[in-house]
Amino acid sequence: MNLDFAQLVPSIPYILYGIWVTLQFVAVSLVLGFLWGTVLSLFKIGKVTILRWFADAYTSVFRGTPLILQMLIIYYAVPQLTGMDIGAFTAGVLTFALNSAAYISEIIRAGINAVDKGQKEAAIALGVPYRSMMLKIILPQAMKNILPALMNEFITLTKESAIVSVIGALDIMRRAQIVGASNYRFFEPLLLAGLIYYLLVMMLTLTGRVMERRLAKSD
């Protein structure tokens, strides 16, 4: 065994700061992805053919190509085509938001479709307008179906966020690699990074369970 964690100690704060970067990255991507995903899901269940077609094609493309490819295209193509410089963080957030929106839109669409058709009929028979029917009757019930899958997507996003290290964003992963390269010892910092990711994912899992329990109060 050739392990020396003592050498790692001075670099620990540097790696830990990556948590903040990763969390920021994931949080912004999540919020944007969720909003855009909700819009896409409404396109999918809506009556406007062109929007439905667009949302389906969008989902198909983003699910059908590698995430890392999407990120590299956004990171390199945007400056080349528009002349605008785009930072690694921005490119990463943009990629993850656009990509996870495709998955989230499918999750939400399935959740809405799983709500009993009688709920919609009851609301219609009472003369409730479409907007309040969706917001107050259908979506709250859909959330219960959606939450476990959504939490899964959030966990995936947290883990996959490590690939922004490829374009040089200073997240947990990238910092662990930098520390490894400067000490010529990779195993220890990577182990630490792994531990951090694992704890982050556990926290998300627990949060999801608490939220599910709260939503289940009417059962």
Partner: peptide, 13 residues
């Protein structure tokens, strides 16, 4: 017009 359904269709939440 009010309507009552076979399966009640109460709002469960």
């Amino acid at each position: 017009i009010g309507m009552v359904f076979q399966h009640f269709n109460l709002f469960p939440h």
